[in-house]
């Protein structure tokens, strides 16, 4: 017999809300990148408007978490689910903010002819997109190997970021005309690198939710924390 039927439903509902918010923000990042690559200002404006929806989702989920804690006193694995959700929404919400930042850059650069194709940035964005998708799947299915995969993919993003940084710096040194665009591309790359870190935070929370252990799982995060 299920003793806490209504509690189970609320807890299930909370997890669905997180997945929904995760995919909404993932879509924001996809649209922001598409707006940048295709120089589509209307799509960029859509992303900026989406942010209010993401913020509302964030507040709604946090409110539900606080109510569950206050009224249902979740324990053990239930407590870890609520704790994970409450932390995860903050990281996911930040990814929405970075998407808006990228959308704003897309608007600023919409009249420019790009001096180079956005290959590395697009590759970074595709990896981040995969990481978000995998993290949400890992959350839903309590999939620890997938969590580790996400954490490893963060290294790829860091690696791409470093390469792009060096490359753009080189362009800027050689031709001051390229400083304007290059600076904005660097910002976008930096935002994507931050998005990857935020999704790694979520993945680490999934690990905690399943095992009860809070660990720094991304190799890059580990080395930073040991320094």
């Amino acid at each position: 017999m299920e003793v806490r039927r209504s509690f189970e439903i609320q807890l299930q509902n909370l997890q669905e809300n997180l997945i929904e918010m995760g995919h909404f923000v993932r879509r924001m990042l996809q649209k922001a990148m598409q707006a940048l690559v295709e120089q589509d200002t209307a799509l960029a404006e859509e992303v900026i408007a989406d942010d209010d929806v993401a913020d509302a989702m964030d507040i709604n989920i946090e409110t539900k978490c606080m109510r569950l804690i206050a009224l249902q006193q979740p324990m053990a694995k239930d407590l870890r689910v609520v704790g994970t959700v409450i932390k995860a929404i903050a990281d996911i919400e930040r990814i929405g903010d970075y998407s808006v930042d990228i959308a704003k850059i897309a608007i600023r650069l919409s009249e420019e002819k790009y001096f180079k194709p956005l290959e590395i940035i697009s590759k970074m964005a595709a990896t981040v997109d995969t990481m978000i998708d995998e993290t949400l799947k890992a959350f839903l299915e309590r999939d620890l190997p997938l969590v580790q995969k996400v954490c490893n993919e963060d290294d790829e993003v860091d690696h791409l970021y470093k390469n792009l940084f060096d490359e753009l710096l080189d362009y800027m040194r050689k031709d001051p005309e390229l400083v304007y665009q290059s600076t904005y591309f660097l910002f976008v790359a930096r935002y994507l690198e931050r998005c990857a870190d935020h999704i790694v935070n979520v993945a680490e929370r999934v690990h905690y939710m399943v095992t009860g252990q809070l660990l720094q799982l991304a190799p890059s995060h580990r080395s930073t924390s040991e320094e």
Partner: peptide, 20 residues
């Protein structure tokens, strides 16, 4: 430990209100 991450499934079921 018991209330955050119990080791035994029975303990977990009890303290999360799954039976009792």
């Amino acid at each position: 430990d018991i209330f955050e991450h119990p080791q035994n499934k029975l303990t977990e079921d009890y303290i999360t209100g799954r039976f009792g």
